[in-house]
Design a protein around this nucleic acid. Structure first.
Lengths: 193, 193
DNA sequence: CCAGTGTGCGACATTGATGTCGCATTCTGC
DNA sequence: GCAGAATGCGACATCAATGTCGCACACTGG
């Protein structure tokens, strides 16, 4: 049953190249043309159409890819290991590594509207909310803020950092610490560290 | 010299209605049609075209409107009055009141690319960076984070709150305190308040 | 070396948004 | 109540993106 039969290695590779290009391009140009995407993938529009019948089809695949990356990153972070803050740090690191995926997925409000899976992730995303609640129970995370709000802020700050890294405002190696400092302790007061 | 001659009151009103509708609609549907926008404005596509030659023309006007709102909000907040944190709070409140304008302006990366004014604002936005630096000098804001980063986070968190309010996740009257709590003190630790 | 698979290239019809008009109707201010 | 402005309603031409093909070339694994 574990057959990946109809897919040649080459075919799989260009398919992936197209998906990657789609995400990369669409993040910066939401109304990019299929021709643009094909070009960015180093291939032609006809080839793109050989792999994806529709624009919608490509979008679906790109969403699935991004979604998969996020789920994988979340699971890799082993949120139930160690104390909640440590886990949160691992998670942020993992998210920063797939910044473009995250931007692609959440930048466009219309995308979530057309792809139930996204809203579903946002809703079902038990892991992160669970982690936050665990942190609150342990007194490591402010109980006065709702877990949903905290998760939202987490995404927003990671998002901001990904953008900043992308446009050169923030050095890649500073991103993680900037996000964590900001997210955990806020911006008020002289640095406690 | 203070002539507003060629513009009837009625004309000005529908023009404004169209701009408002454009912002309102485009925030939720980036590829909305001019017909959609006209409908949302309670008018017809032909009337829209009577006020704005081009789609680009409308976009320009919408960007100008949003930009103006932001500049006005910033100036209304009187950033040089009182201590930096107080000023910051006034500013966040003012920004939350024009959440859709902010979302419209910064949601679409392609928009900034086509409208230099936006990038210019982001760059020139002396006031906010100035405020943050003032706060840092006074020991009220963490000096370990760059002012540019802090400003970015400020936008991001306001943005997140505006979205949350919009989709009903966050009550409007809780938005301000949520943003301030999160932004100033972060999410770590049991609530100090 | 030779099939066959994957691709590039260009042509084509289709479609939906756009921008422009003319005409009829409604609204506004005087 | 009336003139002029503002709008609504279609009809229209245009244009760019899309999706589909057929043909020819390259690459690759036997």
């Amino acid at each position: 049953m574990s057959t990946a039969p109809t897919l040649t290695a080459a075919r799989r590779r260009t398919r992936q190249a197209i998906i990657d290009a789609a995400i990369r391009v669409l993040v910066r140009q939401r109304d990019a043309t299929l021709a643009d995407i094909a070009a960015a993938a180093g291939t032609s529009r006809s080839t793109l159409h050989r792999h994806f019948a529709d624009r919608a089809d490509l979008l679906r695949a790109a969403v699935a890819e991004a979604l998969g990356s996020i789920v994988r990153a979340t699971s890799d972070a082993a949120l139930d290991r160690g104390d909640a803050l440590q886990a949160l740090r691992r998670l942020v690191g993992a998210y920063l590594d797939i910044g473009d995926r995250i931007r692609f997925l959440f930048e466009d409000p219309g995308l979530a509207a057309q792809h139930p899976e996204i809203a579903e992730l946002a809703a079902t995303e038990g892991p992160v909310v669970g982690l936050i609640e665990r942190g609150q129970a342990a007194g490591l995370i402010a109980p006065s803020l709702s877990a949903a709000w905290i998760e939202r802020v987490l995404w927003a700050v990671v998002f901001a950092a990904a953008e900043a890294v992308d446009d050169g405002t923030l050095a890649r190696h500073e991103a993680l610490s900037s996000v964590l400092d900001t997210f955990e302790r806020g911006v008020a007061g002289p640095a406690a560290t």
